[in-house]
């Protein structure tokens, strides 16, 4: 019995000594349970909306620009001479969760207004393993009916015929510091369609991803798969591949895409060119943020 106690004594002494050299901070330190940051570098990847919204009190001024298609040949210098489409956007978030924005796109003279809400943010631990952002947008075309004289009527006689809409649930995940992916079930609605047999609703499954190969540069990829038959006009799925470069307060995105349109109803459901025929174009987005 005694021997056992004697054996225990040095052990206890040792444990005491170890204890004295212990981590002083043990039990006091906070755990880092803040949300995962920067799943994507900007609120848009190429054409698609990302799960990101601007940070608190941040105004994002965006310029999106697409040149003409490569297959326009030498005469138009492979698209650089003509066919440029531009969108200017002013987008703001006060709290870093709810974002609103307005924009103007040159193609079809479209004005747009949208809301984006960050419903769920991915966390490193726990059940929130993805980010979910809701996006809803309305588009108003300000162009005149080009066929008014020929048809004898104005197809925009009713102003609501100028409207179209897009709604998305964007689900994204940052897998590690380099790889981020997202999918977005998307619904597009046109108040007015071209033919009587055309459907007003288009469903699209949008997928996008980025792979950062340096701290400030990333490869980006986007695809929009149109699920339902909605028109007899020959359109193609939108596919884009690009490069994100970050320079301090700017994010510069350059890419190749087969979609000339810059609004969701245009690039998701009305892309007239395809990669196979070199119907691709060079484009870039510039984002400049201001803190207000």
């Amino acid at each position: 019995m005694k021997a056992k106690y004697l054996l225990a004594l040095p052990l206890l002494l040792l444990s005491f000594l170890l204890n004295a050299q212990d981590d002083l901070l043990e039990g006091l330190e906070q755990e880092d349970n803040s949300p995962v940051l920067a799943t994507f570098k900007g609120t848009r990847l190429i054409n698609h909306q990302t799960v990101e919204v601007p940070g608190r009190r941040t105004l994002d001024f965006r310029i999106a620009h697409r040149f003409g298609a490569f297959n326009s040949g030498w005469y138009d210098f492979f698209g650089f001479d003509n066919g440029a489409s531009i969108r200017f956007g002013l987008e703001y978030s006060y709290d870093g969760r709810l974002q609103f924005g307005i924009g103007r796109t040159s193609i079809d003279k479209v004005g747009d207004g949208f809301l984006k809400y960050r419903l769920l943010r991915q966390h490193p631990n726990g059940w929130k393993q993805v980010s979910v952002t809701l996006f809803t947008s309305a588009y108003y075309t300000m162009r005149k009916d080009p066929d008014k004289e020929a048809n004898g009527f104005d197809k925009y006689e009713n102003w609501t015929s100028r409207l179209s809409y897009a709604h998305q649930i964007i689900i994204g995940r940052k897998f590690d510091d380099r790889l981020s992916l997202q999918i977005a079930p998307t619904m597009i609605h046109y108040n007015l369609v071209d033919r009587i047999s055309d459907k007003n609703d288009v469903f699209v499954l949008a997928a996008a991803g980025r792979y950062k190969f340096t701290k400030r540069a990333a490869l980006t990829l986007e695809y929009g798969w149109r699920i339902n038959e909605y028109t007899r006009t020959q359109y193609y799925d939108s596919f884009s591949v690009g490069l994100d470069v970050e320079t301090g307060g700017h994010v510069f995105q350059m890419f190749l895409t087969n979609s000339p349109g810059l609004t969701e109803p245009q690039f998701f459901a009305q892309t007239t060119d395809q990669w196979k025929d070199m119907g691709i174009r060079f484009g870039f987005n510039i984002s400049r943020v201001f803190t207000l």
Binding site: E29, S34, A38, G55, P124, D177, E246, V289, T291
Partner: peptide
């Protein structure tokens, strides 16, 4: 001890860059 993500900047983008590009807080 201090958590890197707990540093608050006036500019949200600067805070993101601090975490992402400089301190690599993840």
């Amino acid at each position: 001890s201090v958590l890197i993500k707990g540093f608050l900047f006036e500019k949200a983008l600067m805070q993101e860059h601090f975490n992402e590009n400089y301190m690599e807080s993840s």
